[in-house]
Design a binder for these strands. Structure first.
Lengths: 346, 346
DNA sequence: ATGAAAGCGCTAACAA
DNA sequence: TTGTTAGCGCTTTCAT
C-alpha cells in the first residue's frame, strides 16, 4: 500500500513543477504540449487522483449542496429530494441530505453540520422561524426554502391558503356543516395558512365555528389517529374531514377504514399514492414536489452566481383532483355500512 | 463581509493558542476549565464552525458516507436512506445521496463522483454485477450493498426466495392455478430470485408453467400497467397476481381498481402504505427497510474500523402480512362486482 | 497543561 | 510558458 500519489510525485516523475501539473489538471491552455504529455503519462503511471479536499481548502469552493427536509421518507419530500438530486447531477454537484424531524434544535444542528461542509448552497424546508444564524455574514450561504418560507430567504411554496380554501369549500358545497380539520400544528406556517383558509371558508358559509373541530396535531409522530378518535367521540361529531397534509391524511384514511367509517367525507391537502384506488377514492389538493424541486434548485444556482439578488418568494399554483370522497352526503347521522353511497367510479 | 472565522480568530479572541482551541474542539480532557470556558465563549461569539475540509486534509479522513440507491422516491429506499441518515447523525457523519435509476452507467458515474469526495464508506443498492473498479486498491473504500448482493462485498438483503415462495404458495393454497408474475426484470438479482421461487412453487403444486404469465417488466418506468393489460387479454388469463416489488405493486393495484377488476387475487412483495385500507386489502410480504438500513450502517462502520474483515452476507427474514387479497376464490370467470367477497376486516 | 511550528495537497500570486 | 513561494484551516510532533 504505497499511499496515494500526490501532485508532487507527479511533478517529480514528469520532471516539471507542481504548477505545471496543476495547469494540466485544470486544463489551462498555456501548457507546452510536450510537457503536458509528460505530465499525463506520469498521472497514469502513478494512478494519480487529485484531492478535492485540498482543492477545496485552497479555493474555498466545494461541489456540494445541502438539502434539509422534515423527513426523507415523507413521500412529498422524497420526491423533492429526488428531483433536486437529478438537477444536481446535471450541474455536477453532490447532494448532502439531512432531516429535521420537525425539531428546531435538530434543524439547527443539521444546518450547522452542513455549513461545516461549506456547501455551495442549501435547500431547506424550515422548521424554525428564526434562522438568523444562517444569514449571519460570517456564515452566509445561499439558501432557498421550500414548502414554507422564512423571512429574508428565497422561497418556493404552494398557494396554501387558496388551495385549502378550495378544498374546504368543496366539502361545504357537498352539504357538510360540521367539518373537522386534522393536521393543525400551530408551530408551522403551512398549517397556520391552511387553518386560516378553513376558517375563512367556515365563516363565508355562515357555519358555526367550533374549536373542538380543530384539534392540535403535532407534525411529528402519529397523533392524527388520536385526533380522529376524539373528533368522532364528540357529542356532535363532524361528517367531513379536511386533512391538512398528506402524511396525516394517510394515517387518517387507514384509521377510517379500520373503523369502517368510510361514510366520512374527506379532502386531503396533498395527493398520495393509491388515493384514487381507495373506496371511496380520496379527493386531493395536488402539490407538485418535482416542480418545486426544480424551481428551488434553479433559484439556488441563480443566487450562487449572484448573492445580492433580492429574496424572491415564488408561489406555485396547486392542482385539485376531484375524486369521490368529498361528495359524500351527510346522512341523518346513521353511519352507513362499510361501503359508502359512492360507487360509480369509472 | 469579514469572511468566516477560523481557528486562529478563535484563538486570539480567547487569548490562547490554536492548539488549545483544537483541544477543546476535539474534547481532549487535559484542558484547564478556565481556558476551555474562554474558548467556548469565543466560539459562540464568533459563530465559529470548524472546517471539515481542513481537518480532512490533515487527518486524511472525511465525515462523509455515501448512499446510492435505485431511486430516492421509492418508498422502500426512502425509508432506508432515512434510517441511514439517522444512524449517520448519531455517528457524526454526513450523508451524500445519489440515485442510479437502474442504469449501470449512471451508477458508475455516481460512484466515481462519490469516490472523489473520499467518503468513509458507501452503502449501495447495486445495479451492475461488475463493480471491480470499486475494489481497486488505490481507490478502495468500504462498501456494503443492500437489497442485492455483489461478489466480494458485504451485503444485507432479504430472504427473497423463501419469502416469495411463501407468497406464491398462499395464492396456490387459495385455489389459484393461473398465477401471473408482474415485476420480473431479468437484469436484477432480486427479481431473478423471486421468479425462481415462483417457479418452484408452480412446480411443487404441479401447475402448468406458462411463460406468458411472466412478462418482462423493466424496473424503470411504469411498465407494470402494460404488463397487467397483456396478462388480462390472454386467452386464459390469470386469476391471481404475484407482484414482485412494491413499486410495481402500487401501479398494478391502481390499474386494477381503475379497471374494476378487484376480483383478481394478489400478493405483493413489499408492504406499502394503505395496502390495508384498500378493498380488498392487499396481502404483503413485509420487508423491513429500517432494519436493513441499521444493519448496513453498522456493518459499514465495522468495516471502516477493520478493512480486512471477510465479506459477510447478511440475510434478513421477511414478515408476512396476511390481509385479504390472497384469499379471493377463483370463480367461474364472472368478475365479481367492485366490492369483493372479503369484508370482515375488523 | 500549553504553545510554536511544520505540513496535509492543492492553487494563486508573483517571478523568471 | 514555466517555476517558486506562500498560504487555505486544521492537527500533530516536539518543546516548554
Amino acid at each position: 500500500m504505497p499511499g496515494r500519489a500526490t501532485i508532487k510525485d507527479v511533478a517529480s516523475a514528469a520532471r516539471v513543477s507542481v504548477k505545471t501539473v496543476s495547469r494540466v489538471l485544470n486544463n489551462i491552455s498555456t501548457v507546452d504540449p510536450v510537457m503536458r504529455r509528460r505530465v499525463e503519462r506520469a498521472i497514469v503511471a502513478l494512478d494519480y487522483v487529485p484531492s478535492p479536499t485540498a482543492r477545496t481548502l485552497r479555493t474555498g469552493s466545494t461541489s456540494l449542496i445541502g438539502v434539509v427536509v422534515d423527513a426523507i421518507d415523507d413521500p412529498f419530500f422524497s420526491a423533492l429530494v429526488s428531483t433536486v438530486e437529478d438537477c444536481a447531477l446535471q450541474a455536477g454537484l453532490d447532494v448532502l441530505v439531512a432531516s429535521t424531524r420537525f425539531d428546531t434544535s435538530r434543524e439547527r444542528q443539521q444546518l450547522l453540520r452542513l455549513l461545516g461542509q461549506r456547501p455551495r448552497g442549501i435547500i431547506l424546508a424550515p422548521v424554525a422561524t428564526d434562522l438568523d444564524f444562517l444569514a449571519a455574514q460570517r456564515t452566509a450561504v445561499p439558501v432557498v426554502t421550500v414548502d414554507r418560507s422564512a423571512e429574508g430567504f428565497d422561497s418556493v411554496t404552494g398557494d396554501d391558503r387558496a388551495a385549502a380554501r378550495r378544498g374546504v369549500d368543496h366539502l361545504i358545497a357537498s352539504g357538510h356543516t360540521r367539518i373537522g380539520l386534522i393536521g393543525f400544528d400551530p408551530r408551522f406556517q403551512t398549517a397556520q395558512l391552511r387553518r386560516l383558509a378553513y376558517e375563512d371558508a367556515v365563516q363565508a358559509a355562515h357555519l358555526t365555528p367550533d374549536p373542538q373541530l380543530v384539534p392540535d396535531v403535532p407534525f411529528a409522530g402519529d397523533a392524527a389517529r388520536g385526533a380522529l378518535h376524539s373528533l368522532l367521540s364528540l357529542a356532535d361529531p363532524p361528517t367531513a374531514l379536511f386533512l391538512a397534509n398528506a402524511r396525516h391524511a394517510t394515517s387518517v384514511v387507514s384509521a377510517v377504514h379500520e373503523l369502517g367509517r368510510t361514510d366520512l367525507a374527506m379532502v386531503s391537502f396533498g395527493d398520495f399514492p393509491l388515493a384514487g384506488a381507495l373506496t371511496p377514492s380520496v379527493t386531493c389538493i395536488n402539490q407538485d414536489p418535482h416542480r418545486m424541486g426544480v424551481l428551488a434548485f434553479e433559484r439556488l444556482m441563480e443566487r450562487v452566481d449572484d448573492p445580492d439578488l433580492q429574496p424572491l418568494n415564488r408561489v406555485l399554483p396547486t392542482g385539485f383532483i376531484e375524486r369521490s370522497s368529498h361528495t359524500l352526503t351527510p346522512g341523518p347521522s346513521e353511519p352507513a355500512l362499510a361501503t359508502a353511497p359512492t360507487r360509480g367510479r369509472r
